[in-house]
């Protein structure tokens, strides 16, 4: 096995173009499990963790440009105000040890339907920046996932960063897992309210072949939220919103939960997330 540890992105892209089958490794929290269990035996490992530009974030005014390798711990410690949904999701990932190493780039690279970063990225309408020796492109997060553990990237591309709009209203993330910590999502839900544009974004995790949006639920919320006066979300709205989210999911039965439970609990947590996110939207306004 060859092992490359480039110090710059340019070197990494050059290596990726000459070794398109090289397996990228950053935090290693997905890759190492595959290696330890003999599920993957790549000829080349391309270690991105020494590239400093991947492990930084910057403030772009309306958005945050989040380096692919910024670990979850830093996301919820440093970006809880700008990206509350992603910060909440980051706090639910694995354990401290996992959060210290794993990051959004690896989550997107693995493209597991259960990845906790995905629903908040979908909800806020992020763009995934990928690069190769031939240049860069920004992939709309809505186009990024193709199927279970499949994304749209080309073999010579590397994820460099994710551009995420700063919160323009309340955001929430909620995840169902049978344990109170260290658990892969049975299903999850992220919401981002955009008070400026009077719109609502959603993301559903672990209840379909890819992370999903709940478009009808989004329009329902956008038309039913009381943008003018900020009156509270009613139980009826929670219920209807939840039902629309559940209807948008496409879950299956597996060892972690039944499809029926996933639908049921998604409806519950999404309704709650709407309520909480709306409350924090009002709190933000009054400040």
């Amino acid at each position: 096995m060859e092992f490359f540890r480039p110090a710059t992105l340019i070197d990494a892209l050059a290596l990726k173009s000459t070794h398109p089958t090289a397996l990228c490794i950053n935090g290693g929290t997905d890759v190492m499990v595959e290696l330890n269990f003999d599920r993957k035996r790549p000829e080349t490992l391309l270690d991105l963790s020494a590239i400093s530009e991947l492990s930084e974030w910057s403030d772009q005014g309306d958005s945050i440009l989040l380096g692919a390798g910024v670990p979850y711990t830093r996301i919820y410690q440093e970006l809880a105000k700008e990206l509350p949904g992603l910060a909440m999701a980051s706090r639910t990932v694995g354990s401290l040890q996992i959060r210290n190493k794993g990051g959004v780039g690896g989550n997107l690279g693995s493209a597991s339907p259960a990845g906790d970063a995905h629903p908040p990225l979908l909800a806020s309408g992020a763009a995934v920046n990928v690069a190769s020796v031939n240049g860069t492109r920004a992939i709309d997060i809505n186009e990024f996932f193709l199927g279970p553990k499949k994304n749209t990237m080309n073999p010579d591309e590397i994820i460099t960063s994710v551009l995420i709009p700063k919160a323009r209203g309340g955001q929430q993330y909620s995840k169902i897992g049978t344990r109170n910590a260290m658990v892969i999502a049975v299903c999850s839900f992220g919401i981002a309210i955009d008070a400026k544009n009077k719109s609502v974004g959603t993301g559903i995790g672990s209840a379909g072949p890819t992370p999903l949006r709940a478009h009808e639920a989004e329009s329902y919320a956008a038309t039913h939220l009381d943008w003018a006066n900020g009156s509270a979300v009613t139980p009826e709205m929670m219920k209807e919103f939840g039902a629309l989210v559940a209807a948008a999911s496409r879950p299956i039965d597996d060892v972690r939960g039944t499809a029926a439970y996933r639908r049921h609990s998604l409806a519950v947590i999404s309704g709650r997330c709407l309520k909480w996110a709306w409350t924090s939207t009002q709190d933000m306004r009054s400040k």
Partner: peptide
């Protein structure tokens, strides 16, 4: 609360 850091409830249910 039930669910812990997963943020499932703020007291609801």
């Amino acid at each position: 609360l039930p669910g812990g850091a997963s943020n499932v409830t703020h007291g609801e249910g």
